[in-house]
């Protein structure tokens, strides 16, 4: 058991950014095809980060670097906790902590675009935080444990009991991954009213670290989507990968077809969807359980 945990954590540490980077590459290609363009090569994100790492880093203050380092470390830690089979609630607590670090790095620079991005990112966190906690509780009520290690040994896939949770989670995933229409805090296109929002004042190596953290994060998120389908049968992993692909494609599709919404509209939508989908799911699950 202990050995398998170590192996899984090491695999995550090594493969996490690879998967995350590839996902971004695929995202770019799909987006380009949707817009009738050829798009960049699959490995373009890796070239980009490689280049960023070798550029001169320009910082606004030294605290900024500190927070970005903390952001990367805690994101990796969160993922390791999940893939190592830890407590789901602890995973989400740790996740929000790493996010706070990124927000603080934006706050620390005292720049108008960064500050705006930081506020918006906090609002985005407020939008998806309830869903994350409900998700962990949903798994606990449905499968009887908070531990990822126990959950992957389930008899039947969790999605049977938690369809509403899956919908809710897929929805907040758009907010979490900062995809349009909920790319309020930062965006991949820097030529707009908010410049790059949260990451406006981050450059060079620091920007590379943020990208790296986001890759780890994307892998973690896909892992959580997979959790809905994983059972003790090895074949279930195929379904999990399939489900991740579908969810990822849908997010990319929505990203390309929907313009950005206003902050409070996002807030209302997110809490509404969470309450209706995940809340009702939990309520029904509780009634059946009795």
């Amino acid at each position: 058991m202990a050995v398998s945990i170590v192996v899984r954590v090491i695999l995550y540490l090594l493969l996490g950014p690879v998967i995350g980077g590839l996902l971004e590459g695929i995202d770019r290609i799909i987006s380009a095809r949707m817009q009738g363009r050829q798009g960049p090569p699959l490995f373009q994100p890796f070239y980009d980060v490689y280049k960023l790492m070798h550029k001169q880093t320009i910082v606004v203050n030294s605290i900024q670097v500190l927070f970005i380092t903390a952001y990367l470390i805690f994101t990796i830690f969160t993922g390791a906790l999940f893939f190592g089979g830890g407590d789901m609630l602890l995973v989400f607590f740790s996740l929000s902590m790493s996010e706070v670090m990124l927000v603080l790095s934006a706050y620390s620079v005292n720049g108008p675009y960064s500050a705006m991005g930081a506020q918006r990112e906090l609002l985005q966190m407020m939008c998806y935080e309830p869903m994350m906690l409900l998700l962990a509780i949903g798994f606990y009520v449905a499968q009887g444990s908070f531990m990822v290690n126990d959950l992957i040994g389930a008899d039947r896939p969790a999605v049977i009991a938690l369809p509403g949770m899956l919908i809710g989670f897929a929805f907040v995933l758009i907010i979490k991954l900062r995809k349009s229409p909920f790319d309020l805090s930062t965006s991949h296109h820097a030529h707009q009213e908010m410049v790059k929002g949260l990451t406006t004042d981050i450059s060079g190596r620091d920007m590379g670290l943020v990208e790296l953290a986001e890759w780890y994060d994307a892998t973690l998120m896909m892992g959580i989507v997979g959790m809905f389908f994983v059972t003790r049968e090895p074949v279930s992993y195929l379904f999990a990968i399939l489900a991740c692909s579908v969810v990822f494609f849908l997010i990319t599709l929505i990203d390309n077809t929907h313009p950005r919404v206003k902050a409070m509209r996002m807030f209302g939508l997110a809490w509404g969807v969470i309450l209706v989908c995940a809340g009702t799911n939990l309520l029904i699950l509780n009634l059946i359980g009795k």
Binding site: V60, N61, I63, Q64, F67, S96, V100, V103, L104, A106, Y107, S108, V109, N110, A115, A118, Q119, L122, L123, M125, M126, C127, E129, P130, L133, L134, I137, W271, L275, G279, L282
Partner: peptide, 25 residues
């Protein structure tokens, strides 16, 4: 549970923005 999870979201928001204000250099 629902009160608690939604309340956690807003708790995070008001503390983090205060923390950010202090950390500004």
């Amino acid at each position: 549970v629902i009160f608690l999870v939604f309340g956690s979201g807003s708790t995070l928001f008001y503390w983090a923005k205060w923390l950010g204000k202090i950390c500004t250099v």
